[in-house]
Every structure is written in C-alpha cells, then in structure tokens.
Design a protein around this nucleic acid. Sequence first.
DNA 1: GCTGAGAATGAAAATCATTTTTATTATTAT
DNA 2: ATAATAATAAAAATGATTTTCATTCTCAGC
Lengths: 145, 145
Amino acid sequence: MDAKRVFEEFLTKKNLRMTYQRQVILNLFLQEQRHLSPEELYDMVKVHDPSIGQATVYRTLKLLCEAGIAREVEFGDGVMRYEPEYGRAHHDHIICTDCGDKVEVYDPEIEALQEKMAEREGFRLTHHKMYLYGICKKCQKRRRR
Amino acid sequence: MDAKRVFEEFLTKKNLRMTYQRQVILNLFLQEQRHLSPEELYDMVKVHDPSIGQATVYRTLKLLCEAGIAREVEFGDGVMRYEPEYGRAHHDHIICTDCGDKVEVYDPEIEALQEKMAEREGFRLTHHKMYLYGICKKCQKRRRR
DNA sequence: GCTGAGAATGAAAATCATTTTTATTATTAT
DNA sequence: ATAATAATAAAAATGATTTTCATTCTCAGC
C-alpha cells in the first residue's frame, strides 16, 4: 500500500477529508526524499500553487506524522524538520558540526540495548531520538591543512 | 576545582568579567540539581533579586554551556533546558510521554557502539543527544485500570 | 583611590518558527 | 441539492529567545 493510500485511510478513520491541498503537499513531500522544514516545503508548494497557505503546510505535516507517513527530526538549529517515515527503515543521524552534512545510520545492537535499558527502568519504549554530532572525514582533512 | 572557579577561569581566558549577576545565577543554577528552563531559573533569580533581567539569565546560561558547566537538554516541548554538567557523569534520558517523568540513564555499551558507528562513517564524535520515550511503570499501571 | 576603555546590564523591542483566529469555501453523507 | 462539518487562506497572535541601546559596572594601569 502506498503512502497516499495510507493517508486516505487515516483521514477516513478520523473523519477528516482528503483535499486538493493535502494531496499537493503530500506529493511534494514524498517526492523530495530528504528532511524538509515546513518553510522549505512551503517554498516548493508555492511554486506549484501559490494560493496554498503556509499554515496548511504546517497542519498537513502534523497530520502526516500522526498517520505514520512522516517523522519529526530535530537537528538542534531551532527548526523542526520532517522526513518520510512510511515504508522506510528506521534510522538515526550523524551530523557534522562543521559543514552540516547528515548521514543516516542504524545499528541493531544499539536499538536492542536501548530496549534493554528502558526495560531496566520499568519503561515500555515507544520511540527515541538519537543524534550523534562530530566532524566528518572531509572537514577533518580541511582542518588539517 | 569547583564550578565557580572553572567559570572564573573561563571568563578570564575570554577577557570577560565575573559579575554580581553571574554569581547569583550560577549559584542558583547549581543549587537546583535538575534541568531548568531559562524561565524557571529566572523565576528563582527574581526571588533573590528582582532587579536582574531575564536576558541576563539567557546570556549567562549560554556562557555556562561554553564553560562546560551547563549542558543543553531538549525534551521536545519547545523549551530549552539546562542541567549541571561540570563534575557530573555523562548521562542520557528516558522520558515518560504520559506523566513527563524523566530518568537519567547511562549505558557504557551504547556509548561504545556509538563511537564505533561514527568511526565506521568517518566521523570524529564530539557529543550526542539521546532521548528514549516511553511509558513509565506507574503510568502503565494507571492505564490498565 | 582614580580613570578610561571595554564589558555587562535591564528594559524594551525585535525575531522567528509555529499556532490560532476568523471569515469564507470546499467536501461529503444524506 | 442540501445541510453539516471540515478545511482553507490570510492575518494576527503567541511564545521562546535574541538583539538593541542607553546606562552602569568592572578592572587594569596609573
């Protein structure tokens, strides 16, 4: 089942409606396979149809998260970002503090240990945020010069 | 060496000055051994001396971070929080999404795997943020009722 | 102890991302 | 078609944080 279909079912279940605006926003969001801030997405939406308002972009992104199609990502620059979640494998991020480059990473061992740790504390885990910060290879070289 | 001393040396090195306001803010910050938002800290400062402005609290917290005395913590409610860092062992957090309770956790195995993962990607790690979200024991029980 | 240069301050205004309001328009079950 | 209700655009509001600016400290050098 594709993301659009998932969204439609989610909306129906919640007695909400699929609208032209939501379709445009979803399409553009999925098309760009990277984390977008609401503002970046809004800029793309404006090109497509300048009559769509930015509040609608914000509202739709929230809905997409609820529907499990998008996921919030916070890299720590004070802007929320959203990335496709549905049909994608879970991953975390390493961020270069020099050039801002971001790499997706995944380590099943870490995930398992997180579960174990939560259990130890009596928590039933629902999700997590993990961001590693460092200097990427390129920037290490540049610094050495 | 105590935190106050560390802060003084940091300020001297940067050609900055230890002031009455910075002392008050540092003392109150250290006294309360938990994560505080600038606003919460400002409320405490006001009780002590209502003439101290909130911008100064914000500015001082930033300095304390630079000096390695405080650390920024983001639980995802849109408010930055600060907790004592100097002289404290590194730790991460598990947050209950029901009651907001926060538990400090630490797992050397996870830390080691993070290092390894970063190395694999060519990054030299400087720090990380890890927040686990779930339901704590109490809230699990409450829900069962 | 004074003095001058630069740092620090409080108060208010500015910023900036995000949310809410409001009047209007669109959607959908009947 | 027609209600009933959801969704929208645009603008205003919000709320945390930062900046501005005029004034007041702080401290090294006399």
